[in-house]
Design a protein around this nucleic acid. Structure first.
Lengths: 185, 185
DNA sequence: AACAATTGAATGAACGTTCAATTTTAGTGT
DNA sequence: ACACTAAAATTGAACGTTCATTCAATTGTT
């Protein structure tokens, strides 16, 4: 029965995004999911595996969201903007996923996970590779182009979700343009 | 005796940067610091306060490092580059501080801390304010200018410190220029 | 001697995990 | 439809461990 498994994953996501790893015991996950403590170990070997499964699911969610409406045919800048807006819009409406993801990526836990997302990540590298070939992007390691494009977006989304500032459409557009300017010659 | 207090703070810094919050018990901090478990509570009320004190110390360290050689007299771009290189160089040679800081900022713990760094942060806002007045920067919330300038730097530093790629002088310079391009008209 | 610093064993609570017992599901024969 | 049964799902109390914190006793300092 997949229902119970996803219920556990969803509870874990929202609990950890609000309370952190260290402050969400298995017993609380069980109670919030409406299941018994023991059954979690029927679906996941232990807490670590539960967190890793959730991490993979969240990571895939981000990548799939970015790839929505993606087409290899579109011109470079339009494809860039597609990725960028997809990412920011998805993040803005999935705060728990953002907080969980950031928390996990910045914890030593992540060092034990060596997942392979090469298939999902291919379109990004294709985009950056093409921009480099065409001489549109500054000659840089693709990872650097990636971070110049998306790191400010993530940072601003987190500020918005924490209530520090409001990200309206005008700000979003300015940011997207600024990121494009950062990576183009 | 300040020696013991700073020894505790330093051990905590390196332990947490390598093992994470949840995996560094007070007993291990004590052993690593060469003190008894009890004495920690002579210098800090509890674990939370110890972490918050460390966080403040680390945060101040970053800000002071960025302000090295700072002068209100320098032209805008030179001041920007001063901040930027100060930040990146300091980060590159203080990996434990980077990892601790990132871990802490992305955990729910940070929500309980409301520190006031307005004094230390003033020069940054002055820089962005001046650039906006002079029409050199794109018209944006100063926080957005800040994130466009430093979020990619942080992300690339973390990748370097994790061994994913190497940040040499050429890459550093390209990144700094790209960030400048992101925020200028 | 008075006070501060320090020790480390003891305490009690919290937590991850286990497992014997119970309930539910699915399959088979009548 | 029904009865029966074996397997799978589920429960929750119990276990053993780990951990933050305490404190009576000891050591160091002024």
């Amino acid at each position: 029965m997949k229902d119970k498994r996803t219920a556990i994953l969803e509870s874990t996501l929202s609990l950890i995004s609000e309370r952190g790893f260290h402050n969400t015991p298995m017993s609380l996950i069980a109670k919030t999911s409406g299941v018994s403590a023991g059954i979690i170990y029927h679906y996941f070997a232990n807490k670590d595996e539960l967190l890793n499964e959730l991490y993979k699911e969240v990571k895939l969610g981000f990548m799939r969201a970015m790839l929505a409406n993606y087409s290899e045919e579109l011109p470079l800048q339009e494809r860039f903007m597609m990725f960028w807006y997809n990412y920011v819009r998805y993040s803005l409406s999935n705060s728990a996923r953002v907080f969980f993801h950031e928390q996990f990526e910045n914890s030593p836990l992540v060092k034990h996970v060596e997942e392979d997302f090469s298939e999902e990540v291919a379109p990004f590298f294709h985009l950056f590779g093409q921009g480099l070939e065409e001489g549109v992007f500054i000659p840089l390691h693709p990872v650097a182009l990636y971070e110049l494009s998306f790191a400010p977006a993530t940072a601003m989304v987190k500020r918005h979700l924490s209530g520090v500032l409001e990200m309206d459409d005008a700000l979003m557009q300015s940011l997207a343009d600024a990121c494009w300017n950062a990576i183009t010659l």
